[in-house]
Write a protein that binds this DNA or RNA. Sequence first.
DNA 1: TGAGCTTTGACCATCAAGGACATTGCCCGT
DNA 2: ACGGGCAATGTCCTTGATGGTCAAAGCTCA
Lengths: 335, 335
Amino acid sequence: MTIKDIARQSGYGVTTVSRVLNNQPNVSEEAREKILEVVRRTGFRLNSNAKRLKQQTSSGIAVVVKGTNNMLFPSILQRVQSKLLDTGWACMINYIDESADEVEEAARICAEAHPLGMLFLGGGIENFRQGFSAIPVPGVLMTGSARDLGFDSLSSVCTDDVYAAECVIEHLLDLGHRRIAILSGWTGDESNPVGLRCRGCLNAFERRGVPFDAGRQLVTSRFSLSDSYEAMCRLLDAMPDMTAVFAAADVMAIGAIRAIRDRGLRVPEDVSVVGFDGVELGQYLTPKLCTVRQDSEGIADRSVALLMDAIRQGTTASHELVPFRFTPGESVRRL
Amino acid sequence: MTIKDIARQSGYGVTTVSRVLNNQPNVSEEAREKILEVVRRTGFRLNSNAKRLKQQTSSGIAVVVKGTNNMLFPSILQRVQSKLLDTGWACMINYIDESADEVEEAARICAEAHPLGMLFLGGGIENFRQGFSAIPVPGVLMTGSARDLGFDSLSSVCTDDVYAAECVIEHLLDLGHRRIAILSGWTGDESNPVGLRCRGCLNAFERRGVPFDAGRQLVTSRFSLSDSYEAMCRLLDAMPDMTAVFAAADVMAIGAIRAIRDRGLRVPEDVSVVGFDGVELGQYLTPKLCTVRQDSEGIADRSVALLMDAIRQGTTASHELVPFRFTPGESVRRL
DNA sequence: TGAGCTTTGACCATCAAGGACATTGCCCGT
DNA sequence: ACGGGCAATGTCCTTGATGGTCAAAGCTCA
């Protein structure tokens, strides 16, 4: 079934059929009707490969999502999708794990799809470096800043992680907490959002003159309930006198709370817990989770907007911070 | 940048370059080396549109996900993605909302991508009817059975929702509960998984001779925390003497628990709660959620396998049930 | 040295659609 | 009545990669 068959069946030429199917002018109403009738009857659809080959366009946007446990991702993805639907573009999503070979495989698949642009969700710049930087299309890093990294086709949209983490620690200090533990994600790279959050914590401790022993007070964990549970157990061993813990993600905070309770301790009476992300779920837990609410819709909207600009107008990369909101909650108490 | 440029730059012909890039025989090692060197240096990639046009293949799998609040979806999607990565196929994911026009838009985009196959996650057969059934490729419905529906290209893989719901109700009845409320999803179509779960509940009540007044004891809600919270409030108003509630999804159970607590009632002392899905999160809540654990990995694996068979061997549609496991938990007590 | 074989590469048609340009036919003004 | 002008339509070439055909080159062996 090709456009030629439609032409033959309708008694017109391929050009006329093409004009009808692309809503172009210079076609008589009669021809339009007849051709559309044949198209409807046969269920014909243009071959997208041929169309894109001729028009030198490609298939839409590729989205790379690293990790599935971040509870903020589903809402961001839906928002992105819904924005892209408005443009009529397709959206290829690649979920990848943290292992290197999957990143490369995903990069290969993305590259072969010849997307017009790429969005990166989760992980920091290290993913991008490792495979995706060879794909010569505009991109937006939706978590973590790409400023000062020398990629002029990579924009970024994120929360001001450093400042937000500072706010969290300041808040805990204001409430009288001094022995504060940090449950962090991977911190190898400070352009990583979690690394930035750690930096914010250290800044706050320093500014307020509160000593902080990273070896004892900080433990890293992956973004998963089970991993953060175990990490929190280690923290409790190393620092049994802690009065508060800051988890670098809500999902970690939830794992941590379970660990605290399984030790027979109470939240927040014995240990206060603060999360990061502000997922809706946090407000349905008992106690309601104190957290930093990231504006997932804002992140999605601005990312898509930046990407569109870059694709359509060739705008150079820019870097935006999306406002966050510190959300006090019952999981923290005043000492 | 085309294959011709590579040919010119490497001093070979396009045929040879094509053979190298497609790992075909009859190329000298020297030519292979030289050509690959040029490819690496220039970052050249075959134009996938041209390639697919010539080879009359298409771009991979389209996945349609309806709703983002089901906490089981991320793990299923990642598993699907990882299985598909093995095949080297791309995977286009479409998140859609429940509104009709988004379904149609998504269907249009999927159709234009000419996928080799489709996967449907969330929602029941009604989505498929409404737009996707016109896409002439094999599909697998990952939630809800497509048996007896007369689509011979649509397979299905799901949990035995009816039986699982029967188990839940039987369990509650065994523990002495008699005034059991049901917090259900949309029930308009009994091929819908949530509809099937309701049917299972009714079966169990009937078999055990326990009266059930659907008008008072059953409330429907969307798959969201806020919606199920409100629905639970209505249930508590209509049936203040309830001793247990069965929520048709874990996310609803969590919304319900918040509603119960906001009334000053305790879980499970005043009201027992059972969920459905068995998301990992449930075991991190307090109390640990009693639920039905669906085998998300099994669902993903079997769905991909069925789809692959249908695409590669033209297997006709089949319908599979994946075992579930009833998971007792602290959110239910014996009366 | 040349017949017979294998390896290698140039060339062209092909895929489905789109666009430049040519052609047709009609309307209208003079 | 005739030609200018214009809308409608068709012809033909192009897009990038592939694969078949066939020629050229290199090799072995009598």
